[in-house]
């Protein structure tokens, strides 16, 4: 029996960054390994060679102890210079939770994170509305779809100035919003005070994406659900399409 083109395709290659203080690196790596079309390797924060990779993921945690501000120190690691070049060349970069904070501090995504409005660490499942299903990270979902994923953060209160927000909205860069289970974007459904209920954004080019919720924690029906698998499936599809695999 001839192999289908799909099974013959080489896997999408993911790199999962480990900063001192990252703590979702193993979860993210293990989630990646559950996809037939993907393989993952760890990236130590001193590494600078990324040319074997299709996608770099900055995982959750408390990089460098979250000293000064979340993500403020991690952006100076040797690896981040390489990530900057990787992104500039069109490579896919995703930041989850603390990884999102690092991308903001590094200026790879616009805006900044503040402490949650109620000043509490929040760890619970939230509903998210997919606002843009055309990005390389969300193409497996459909616009308006409601998915569930857990958040676990103290600084997830996204802020950008008025002009910046208008630009994000106009360019479809708001990818995920906190919503109620019916998909209504309401103030009550906003867990942390985030501006315009923003839970995830991408850059203008669409190849850098940050989200506060944890898709890697909802990749297994036995533990929490499978709504996060679409993010990884989307990336794998995008990589295949780009490389003509």
């Amino acid at each position: 029996m001839a192999a289908s083109p799909h099974t013959a395709a080489p896997p999408a290659r993911f790199g999962v960054v480990i900063f001192p203080g990252s703590n979702c690196d193993a979860d993210t790596h293990d989630a990646i390994e559950t996809f037939a079309g993907a393989e993952g390797r760890y990236l130590w924060h001193k590494e600078t060679r990324l040319d074997d990779l299709d996608c770099v993921i900055l995982p959750g945690g408390f990089s460098y102890g979250d000293y000064l501000r979340s993500g403020a120190i991690a952006r100076f690691s040797p690896l981040m210079e390489a990530v900057r070049r990787f992104a500039a060349e069109g490579g896919l970069v995703m930041g989850i939770c603390n990884g999102f904070q690092v991308l903001l501090e590094a200026g790879l995504l616009p805006g900044a994170m503040q402490q949650n409005e109620k000043l509490k660490f929040i760890c619970r499942l939230v509903s998210l509305k997919v606002e843009n299903d055309q990005t390389p990270f969300t193409r497996r979902y459909r616009q308006g779809q409601v998915i569930q994923a857990p958040i676990a953060h103290h600084e997830g209160n996204y802020f950008i100035d008025e002009e910046g927000l208008a630009e994000l909205e106009a360019n479809g860069q708001v990818v995920l919003r906190y919503c109620d289970p019916e998909g209504e974007v309401t103030q009550e459904a906003n867990p942390n005070g985030s501006l315009a209920n923003i839970a995830g954004i991408c850059n203008r080019e669409g190849n850098v994406f940050g989200m506060m919720p944890h898709p890697e924690r909802v990749c297994d029906a036995l533990v929490g659900g499978t709504d996060g698998r679409g993010v990884f499936d989307s990336i794998i599809d995008s990589v295949r399409e780009r490389s003509g695999r």
């Binding site: 000064l68 501000r69 403020a72 501090e105 805006g111 900044a112 503040q114 802020f159 950008i160 100035d161």
Partner: peptide
């Protein structure tokens, strides 16, 4: 560059 985040 580091001590403050001028956005906020």
């Amino acid at each position: 560059k580091l001590l403050a985040n001028p956005i906020i």
